[in-house]
Computed example of a mutant assay.
Amino acid sequence: MTLARTLEPETMDAFDEAVAYLEMNHAEVNRVFADDLFAGGPTGPRVIDLGCGPATLAIEVASRDEALEVIAVDLSTEMLGLAKQEIDFAGMLDRIMLHQADAKTMAGYEDAIADTVISNSLIHHLEQAAEAIKTSMRLTKPGGRVFIRDLMRPDSESAVESLVQLHAGEETEIAQQLLRQSLHAALTLEEIGQVIEQCGMSAACVQATSDRHWTIDWTRP
């Protein structure tokens, strides 16, 4: 029997959880995300990162191309505070702009303003994933890309625990629990395929890309 989806809070507003998330080792995940993003086709010059968290992915992406301008968006005040520090430490305050906004709607933002919309690990926080996906599509210019990666829910508790030990076994208990909760909240490959078809994408635009991730790579006609 497939493991039922268990939602977690949409935003990470507790300071200790935000810090615990920042202190997790995201370097390899961010590196692979950026590798796959740039290998898939044109990316800039304007990139919007929805659900940017502490901006470590935005920093990794911006570091690959000095011509990129990244708008990093998050709803959590705590995350944005950490993100500002990280961007400052990286010397990228002039290239990565932080915006506080709801990634599900991006109310007040015009259509077709981004060459690429990216997101990593936002979708599993949302009860209705279609909202953020439709918004990503709306923000993207014709010929631009939507590149979204998120966790993929395993089919059993034992599979969840195996992934937690494999990928966070050397992390803190808090970090392990964050990953455990996120895996429970994630969509399966079949579920996200159904969602993107409802949004007007082909299900072929989403693929399993690791033992725990699926990835959407869609180009706006």
Results as ranks from 00 to 15, higher is better:
119 S>Q: 09
112 A>P: 09
57 L>H: 02
164 V>H: 04
73 V>L: 13
121 S>E: 06
31 R>K: 15
54 P>K: 14
23 E>L: 12
79 M>H: 09
142 P>N: 07
85 Q>Y: 05
221 P>R: 13
205 C>E: 04
127 E>I: 01
94 D>I: 08
114 A>Q: 01
169 G>E: 10
190 E>F: 00
141 K>H: 09
185 A>H: 00
19 V>R: 06
89 F>C: 06
108 G>K: 10
134 K>M: 12
25 N>W: 03
110 E>T: 15
15 F>C: 13
59 I>E: 10
61 V>Q: 15
18 A>W: 08
46 R>I: 01
103 A>Y: 03
32 V>D: 07
83 A>W: 11
162 S>G: 08
170 E>Y: 13
180 R>K: 07
140 T>E: 04
77 T>F: 15
46 R>A: 07
83 A>G: 07
82 L>F: 12
121 S>A: 12
195 V>Q: 01
20 A>S: 15
88 D>R: 15
95 R>T: 11
81 G>Y: 08
136 S>K: 06
67 A>C: 02
53 G>E: 12
127 E>Y: 05
43 T>E: 07
21 Y>F: 12
39 A>E: 12
36 D>M: 08
67 A>N: 13
138 R>E: 06
194 Q>H: 01
166 L>E: 15
93 L>Y: 01
174 I>P: 03
107 A>F: 15
46 R>L: 05
188 T>L: 05
221 P>S: 14
29 V>N: 10
135 T>Q: 03
39 A>G: 15
91 G>Q: 10
178 L>F: 08
81 G>F: 05
215 T>Q: 10
40 G>Y: 01
133 I>R: 04
52 C>P: 02
202 S>M: 04
21 Y>D: 11
42 P>W: 05
110 E>H: 07
207 Q>C: 07
75 L>V: 04
209 T>K: 09
208 A>V: 05
154 P>I: 10
59 I>M: 15
165 Q>Y: 09
102 D>I: 08
81 G>L: 15
94 D>Q: 06
16 D>S: 13
43 T>R: 12
181 Q>I: 11
13 D>K: 03
172 T>G: 11
210 S>L: 02
87 I>H: 08
85 Q>A: 14
12 M>E: 13
84 K>H: 13
165 Q>W: 07
47 V>H: 11
8 E>R: 04
66 E>S: 11
173 E>P: 06
77 T>S: 15
19 V>F: 10
174 I>E: 11
151 L>I: 00
